[in-house]
């Protein structure tokens, strides 16, 4: 459902108008006929409305950088499905198994980045470290070292990192 892209931070509506006899793509107000698209490593070539062009490309996550005719463009894709990760980012960190808290690595108020360790837990003779799934601020610590918890127990509450 690629309906919009951002080109150098300007929004452009994208649509596919036809696929035969050529691919016809609508950008904003105009249609463009595209064919002969080839990618070889970091280089690409294609024909737009019959005119052959070639350049360089590089993908950086949701952004594609294109260098064409002496200019670099940044094209960002929007995908509604990416916020699935956002919805999965619980602001609640819960225990998936019962166990004991071995160590608490953060204090209330700490700002954490994605991947920062929050707690080390021990369950069934296995130790695991819970890390922050996204940048956030530690709002509440519901457990301390040596706390025992049940499955599903709320261990840490996170808040948005911008809240100061």
């Amino acid at each position: 459902m690629l309906s919009r892209v951002y080109v150098d931070e300007r929004e452009v509506e994208v649509g596919i108008r036809a696929r035969r006899p050529q691919l016809l793509v609508r950008l904003g107000e105009r249609d463009y006929a595209v064919d002969d698209f080839v990618i070889a490593g970091a280089e690409f070539s294609l024909r737009v409305d019959g005119q052959p062009l070639s350049g360089w490309w590089y993908r950086r996550g949701e952004e594609l950088q294109i260098r064409l005719a002496g200019r670099t463009y940044s094209v960002q894709f929007t995908s509604h499905a990416k916020s699935a990760a956002a919805t999965a980012r619980a602001h609640e960190v819960r225990a998936s198994m019962p166990g004991v808290v071995v160590a608490v690595h953060r204090a209330v108020g700490d700002v954490v980045a994605a991947g920062d360790a929050l707690l080390t837990l021990e369950s069934m003779k296995l130790q695991a470290t819970l890390v922050a799934s996204h940048a956030a601020r530690v709002a509440v610590l519901h457990v301390a070292a040596q706390s025992v918890f049940e499955r599903g127990a709320l261990l840490v509450s996170l808040a948005a990192a911008e809240d100061a």
Binding site: M1, S79, H80, A81, S83, A84, A86, T87, A88
Partner: peptide
Amino acid sequence: DYPAVDELEALAIGRE
């Protein structure tokens, strides 16, 4: 199986 924050996301997930 999949939570969606809104209808557009549900449709995007569906397409995937």
